[in-house]
Amino acid sequence: MFEFLTKRRIHSEANILLFTVILSILGVFIAGYLVYDHYNPGALFCPEEGLIDCGAVTQGEYNNIFGIPFAHLGLIGMVLTFLFAALRLKHWSRDYTESFFVIVLIFSFLGAILAWYLTYLELFVIGSICIYCFTEFILITVIFGACLYGFIKGE
């Protein structure tokens, strides 16, 4: 079963990984900013207009899952996504990097699930949106979509 995953030829693998690296760099910075805000409440530049209220999300009771802050999970996920994608590109011809695309796909899938869950909480439970959290949601969803596209179109 794992051979099916690791030996699969990915469509446009390098291009998708490059795309992933570009987006995940931005994701790392935003996630880092959110982690900074976690320890310094009110640090985010964020207006309170209409649905937007970053504090209600980042400082509220739903800012964590199983006791782990979403900000920390986001940062770890984005860093790992970036690392595996970059390592695969840098050491393309090494055998040990052959499975890295699948690892990136798995990380982005897990990240997308968490991001979708947080977005659901923002819209239907908290009633406010954090623009930085929403941006992370967009980034990880696009990364996952691109990786999934490459994986499915592969052979």
Partner: peptide, 28 residues
């Protein structure tokens, strides 16, 4: 390659512009 790179950079630029726009809105 150029298409994927362009797509990535366009998304990054759009995201950054949107974030700057929203974060510089006046407080309520």
């Amino acid at each position: 390659r150029k298409r994927w790179m362009a797509a990535g950079l366009v998304i990054v630029v759009i995201v950054v512009v949107i974030m700057i726009f929203f974060s510089t809105l006046p407080e309520g």
